[in-house]
């Protein structure tokens, strides 16, 4: 088995999920210059909702794709409502307050979501019902499972759709205009509040898909999973250049690969001093390194105020 190729594939799969979640961070930041701290928890809620529906329908005899789709759509709908509500309740009233204020409410919201999830779904790990295809195929000595393929294809299609949505449709044009200047966009007849709400809804729906995919990949969901996932996705957004959609996609894929290669090789590189249990450190190291060396990110423009 080719280890390098295997780690690359694993990294790309995980990275495509990071990219989906990172898109939510980057869209919100692009418009509001706010780090939506609760985004990771929205991802978690998405995974939990999807798993709840799928577990419920698993024994009903419905065909598997319909069960999975029902779970996914429920999660997307639930998270969209949640994202909209969070923006209305916790962020909109503070739009002109000092920057610390919305950040603190964001932390508050994520604590609330986490603990609500714990109260509803319990402290235990929830496992994905055994509905997913178990097959795999061989690519030059590396093993690609069906689930990995599904994740890659889904994430790829979604990214293409979003990219075209933002670049080609009138909604996308309105979003870009609002990101550049809400006041001027308002003068052109764009309702900035409307666009901001839509951005939250779109980002949250993507996060729900990301949560669903990641729980399908690991076969698990947990009320605490959103924290680390959100942090990694945020690192990915910063790596690519926050506010930049293609940057978030690139950053997500890169971070996944870095993490996977790092965890795979750190043991032999350091002669066993550090092991793969340091995997989670890589995201933070990448984040700190990017912020020091190139705060605008790989694809971001170097604006002085940004970092």
């Amino acid at each position: 088995m080719d280890i390098l190729l295997q780690q690359l594939i694993n990294g790309l799969v995980l990275g495509s999920v990071y990219a989906l979640i990172a898109l939510g961070y980057t869209m919100v930041y692009g418009i509001l210059e706010l780090i939506n701290f609760a985004h990771g928890e929205i991802t978690m809620i998405g995974a939990m909702l999807a798993l709840a529906v799928i577990t419920h329908l698993a024994g009903s005899g419905l065909p598997v794709p319909i069960v999975l789709l029902a779970g996914l759509l429920t999660a997307m709908a639930g998270c969209s409502v949640l994202g909209y509500a969070i923006e209305r309740v916790a962020y909109r009233p503070l739009r002109h307050a000092p920057r610390l204020a919305p950040l603190i409410t964001a932390i508050g919201v994520s604590i609330v979501l986490q603990n609500l999830a714990m109260l509803i779904w319990g402290r235990e790990y929830i496992s994905f019902p055994p509905l997913l295809p178990q097959g795999w195929f061989d690519v030059h000595g590396a093993r690609v499972t069906d689930v990995q393929l599904i994740i890659l294809v889904t994430a790829g299609i979604l990214m293409l759709v979003l990219d075209n949505l933002v670049r080609r449709t009138s909604l996308g044009r309105a979003m870009r205009a609002t990101a550049q200047s809400p006041q001027l966009a308002g003068l052109m007849g764009i309702d900035a509040n409307h666009i901001i709400s839509l951005t939250f809804i779109l980002g949250s729906a993507l996060a729900a898909i990301g949560g669903f995919l990641v729980s399908a990949y690991y076969g698990l969901a947990h009320y605490y999973m959103g924290f680390l996932l959100g942090l990694k996705a945020f690192s990915a957004a910063v790596l690519g250049g926050i506010g930049n959609l293609r940057g978030a996609m690139l950053g997500g894929l890169l971070l996944g690969v870095i993490e996977s290669l790092g965890a795979g090789y750190i043991g032999s590189l350091t002669h066993g001093v550090f092991g793969s249990n340091y995997q989670d450190v890589f995201a933070f190291l990448v984040l700190i390194a990017v912020l020091i060396i190139r705060p605008a990110g790989l694809l971001g423009q170097n604006t002085a105020d940004r970092a």
Partner: peptide, 30 residues
Amino acid sequence: PTLRLRGDYLAIVTLGFGEIIRIFLNNLNE
């Protein structure tokens, strides 16, 4: 290294720093 960052960026980096310390404390037994 974080001096140039402000507001929310700083918050995330310090958060990452806190987690790094915890991960090291957790794993520095071998």
